[in-house]
Amino acid sequence: MTKFEQLREEVSTRSRMEREYWDSLQEAVIVFRNGFYNYLGLESNEIDDGKGHKAGIVQVGRVKDGKFEMCAPWAHEKDGKKLSFILFLMLPDSESMEVAMTSWTKITVSKPFYDEDAINISTQDMYQPVLCTKENDKLSLEPFYDELFSELVRKISIESL
């Protein structure tokens, strides 16, 4: 093998490993989107946006040009070795299914150095990321959902005014 061929092999290995790394973080975004909806116990993800249109209660996307937009997992913001996305919630009060409050939270996902099957996930307000691991070959975000739910309750609380 020539030195050039050796370099090409190294480039191929690096490209494959980078692709696998980002694929695993994008998988976490997909698991989050579907799992948080179920965690909240929603029967339907539809809400009246106040203008007579239906919208999603739980939405995952990014902020572009100052506005929230839904996007594919590979279109989320990459910063170094971290992937960030926005959780946008349209929340009703107990009187109707019309939007009474909106909330958005930036969530960041990364890989810990010591476990390739785990992820670290956090919001900008968390002191440290929550480690989530695979159970039965499926990524479980339950520990993060619990922390996120507590954070959302604190944000919504009248005491936060």
Rank of each mutant, 00 (worst) to 15 (best):
K155C: 06
I119H: 00
R14P: 02
D79S: 12
P143N: 05
S110P: 02
T2H: 13
T13S: 13
P129H: 04
E116C: 10
P143Q: 03
G80F: 04
E95P: 01
L161P: 01
D115W: 05
A100V: 05
S96W: 08
Y39C: 04
H53R: 12
L139N: 06
T108G: 02
S84P: 03
A28K: 01
L148N: 01
A55V: 02
T105W: 01
F113L: 13
S94N: 13
S160N: 10
Y114G: 06
E116Y: 14
S24W: 07
S94W: 10
V60L: 01
R33M: 05
D23K: 12
S157A: 14
S15T: 13
S84F: 01
Q128G: 08
K111Y: 07
K78M: 10
T123S: 06
S140D: 15
A72K: 11
A75M: 10
A72R: 10
R62I: 02
E116L: 10
Y21N: 06
T13E: 14
L152H: 04
D23N: 14
G52I: 06
V29T: 09
L89D: 02
T105I: 14
T123V: 02
R8N: 15
T133R: 15
Q26A: 07
L89C: 06
Q124F: 03
I57H: 00
L40S: 03
Y21E: 07
K54D: 09
S94H: 13
K81A: 10
L83W: 05
H53Y: 14
K155L: 08
G50R: 07
S12F: 10
E10L: 15
H53D: 14
P73H: 06
L141K: 04
S15F: 11
V109M: 04
E27R: 07
R62N: 00
D48E: 14
H53F: 13
M90A: 06
D49Q: 04
M97C: 10
H76P: 00
R8Q: 12
Y114N: 15
A100R: 10
E46D: 11
S150D: 10
I107C: 05
L148V: 06
F144T: 00
F149M: 08
E46G: 04
G61P: 00
R154H: 11
I156C: 06
E98S: 13
Q124M: 07
P143I: 03
S96E: 11
G80W: 04
G61V: 01
D115E: 13
N38Q: 13
A75N: 09
F144S: 00
E46T: 08
T105M: 09
S15A: 14
W22E: 07
S94L: 12
I30W: 05
D117G: 12
V109Y: 03
P129G: 07
S96D: 11
F32T: 02
F88K: 04
S96I: 06
E159K: 14
T108I: 09
V60G: 01
S84A: 09
S150H: 11
P73E: 05
E116I: 11
I47C: 06
M126W: 00
E159Q: 15
V58D: 03
E147V: 11
A72P: 01
D48A: 12
D137H: 12
R33N: 11
Q26L: 03
Q59E: 11
N34D: 11
